[in-house]
Design a protein around this nucleic acid. Structure first.
Lengths: 222, 222
DNA sequence: TTTATTCAAGCAAGCGCTTGCTTTACGATC
DNA sequence: GATCGTAAAGCAAGCGCTTGCTTGAATAAA
């Protein structure tokens, strides 16, 4: 290997924003690996290598591998929560609010470099009970935003069911998308969001930003 | 533990139905453990212990641990497929057929001792590519039954969307149930099926067997 | 005797994490 | 302004344990 292997990264001390460089790199790498191979299928050596470290150097930033998992989930949820609570704060009409929530949720799930929320969804079992309780707090807030949005839809006559179960079924349909959606297919995320909204509400999306793909583009490979 | 730990199981040779005792025990134990702890989180020693074997004795029945995973999935899918293809063969009216499919799917997912299909759904990543291709054949047949049922619903005017994507969203809502449904809650599986059907079709179930819990019982804990 | 099945022991590799030491940056001191 | 102490950050090695799987002998039924 040539020059690139010995590039010196300047080290800093007392950095103002505490999560600049190395810790954040570890989080991104582990989020990606946890998503791709699962928590148990990822070794700390994998994570270290993806970050360009020796196999034991990560302990300076996290006490245990489990702590890395919890940090990935916390980080992902804090970010996702900020996005949807910002939408809820806009006070949009129920239909438009619902549209925005669906689009944002799908982007959080499928967007480029968005590995954190899939880890929350699909590695939940690997969380230790104490960490599970802590992360649950954020998750409940996330669900609460949706339940309130559904309640508003219902008040406007656009929804019929019991809020709690409907929210869970709706989450299922949306979250499962991470299993089958192929970003290389002809259906982009906006088009997929259109399909989801139509599936949930039985009417075309209320939002003004329709997908540019006019036809009924559909393709999903496994 | 008392007498039960040393009971001698008589051994047979050339048993007519090839999967009577030990191999089947291994499959059931590994299905349960794979579901509870994941493929990577389950060791062959866990499986052996749950079956009452020494840690290396399972190799007589399966070549590798991966083969056990594939066998669990094959077994689960062959069984589930038989159930829903039997329903499709009845030639019921579309609404009633859909009802039966939903109820059967949920029972396959949530019924007592039904660990095989959750493993198919949530341990897919741990399948090696060759095995994945083999299991996919059954999975596609399973999905085809649903897509045909949706097409019939659509022809009868009870469904509006594109069959493929709708089937995937529908699978998501149903399969996610395995994550949150609590069998100890006040909502039994039949009641849950009612809720799902209402969610999908926006009308009460067509089937004659309504849940006995008349009220809108709902509860789901994690 | 033959064949099916299991046991008891263990091997090589990989696991999470620890240890002891070195390098680097920065503030205080002379 | 050169020197030094301190602490952040990382390297190289490896420890104790677990992993999937193998081996060779033992047991039981046909």
């Amino acid at each position: 290997m040539s020059a690139a292997s010995k590039v010196k990264v300047p080290r800093k001390r007392n950095v103002p924003d505490v999560d600049t460089s190395r810790r954040q790199q570890l989080l991104r790498a582990s989020a990606r690996l946890f998503r791709e191979k699962g928590y148990d299928g990822t070794s700390v050596r994998d994570i270290a290598q993806a970050t360009g470290m020796q196999s034991g150097s990560w302990v300076y930033h996290f006490a245990t591998k489990h702590d890395m998992l919890e940090a990935v989930m916390q980080e992902g949820l804090v970010d996702a929560l900020a996005r949807i609570e910002a939408i809820a704060a806009l006070g949009l009409p129920p239909r438009q609010q619902f549209d925005q929530l669906v689009r944002t949720h799908l982007d959080t799930l499928l967007g480029a470099g968005q590995d954190f929320i899939p880890v929350v969804l699909y590695e939940w079992r690997s969380l230790e009970p104490a960490a599970r309780r802590r992360v649950s707090v954020l998750l409940k807030r996330y669900e609460a935003v949706w339940e309130q949005a559904l309640a508003q839809l219902r008040a406007a006559g656009d929804w019929s069911g019991t809020t709690r179960i409907d929210a869970l079924l709706l989450f299922g349909a949306l979250n499962w998308v991470a299993r089958w959606y192929d970003p290389r297919g002809t259906l982009d995320v906006q088009g997929l969001a259109d399909e989801c909204i139509r599936f949930f509400l039985r009417t075309p999306p209320a939002s003004d930003r329709r997908s540019k793909s006019s036809g009924r583009a559909q393709r999903a490979a496994r």
